[in-house]
Design a protein around this nucleic acid. Structure first.
Lengths: 167, 167
DNA sequence: GTTACTGCAAATCTTTTGCAGAAGA
DNA sequence: TCTTCTGCAAAAGATTTGCAGTAAC
């Protein structure tokens, strides 16, 4: 069975091929940034990726990280998550939804077939040519719930959101 | 039949009640910002709301606009859209999806029952206490298509996104 | 009369830009 | 060799903060 490291290596290899096939240059910085993105379950921000890649490339600049992330988005290998101030990046290539815990700030991926179905319906209803989608949910994760994070006010908000979401 | 203005007035009235019921102060600035938000079909940015409300309240400050928008989000009366750099705000109280035209930057609301269904499924699968959701699509609107905006590269991207969204 | 809210100015933080030099193809 | 890409430094935006005065309750 392939390890996580094997899967990451295979994806980096595909990225390398895609780069040269599309006429982009294969640079160690680009490979390292992509690898850091897909190896992280954390949906890192540009800042976090910069910090991590800096360990291997101490001279790298934030501009390169931002450039590469834009390229990845353009190539369809990453998507931007608009949660809370700073943009975070998602290298998961499958259609899925993102769920953010507003307490611990972790983001979880959930596979959900309905996302693909919504995509088709929106295309049909809107007559847009669509090239991207993003499904984001906000809440409190089970671990934080267990730690008693939910105070009265958040609970009220959660109930209100549930109602309006179901109405 | 109620006019758009009537509907806006009714919503502002409800906002006023909600403010005082929850112990917040009813200020003319808050009412004006909320009114500007829901009267605009444009999903305005904080900057745009500031500019518009400034016409009626020349002394208003950006900080007040940001404060009020945060309050509206907290109360569930508005949601943030994470499209492209600046945050834009959506005062539509119904469950819906947002579709952004990457060319003209307009955002369209599309009513979609599946959004409520996804909410329930994500809640069940994640065991989160959920209090918000956001469904965003990117593409090119019919008008911009008709104006010939779609060049080769965007078309390729759109086709690629369609494939990955359907796989 | 209290206390929350506003306006102002400065600060902070993220992201972008312009340019000279380095390094892929 | 020819561009593209990188690193750097500065700039540009968006949003937040601290504080004194104002106004809602």
């Amino acid at each position: 069975m392939p390890t996580l490291g094997d899967r990451v290596q295979a994806m980096v290899e595909r990225f390398r091929d895609l780069l040269s096939r599309e006429g982009y240059r294969v640079t160690p910085q680009r490979l390292a940034i992509y690898e850091a993105l897909i190896a992280s379950p954390r949906h890192p921000s540009a800042e976090e990726l910069y910090e991590q890649v800096s360990r291997r490339f101490p001279m790298i600049s934030p501009a390169t990280v931002y450039n590469t992330l834009q390229l990845l988005v353009k190539m369809g290998l990453a998507s931007e998550l608009g949660f809370s101030g700073e943009t975070r990046y998602d290298g998961n290539p499958h259609v899925h939804v993102n769920v953010l815990c507003s307490h611990c700030k972790r983001i979880f991926d959930i596979e959900e077939d309905l996302a693909a179905e919504i995509f088709e319906r929106v295309r049909a209803k809107s007559n847009f040519v669509l090239y991207g989608q993003r499904h984001e949910f906000f809440g409190v994760c089970p671990e934080c719930q267990a730690r008693g994070v939910l105070n009265g006010s958040v609970q009220r908000e959660a109930q209100a959101a549930g109602r309006s979401a179901a109405d």
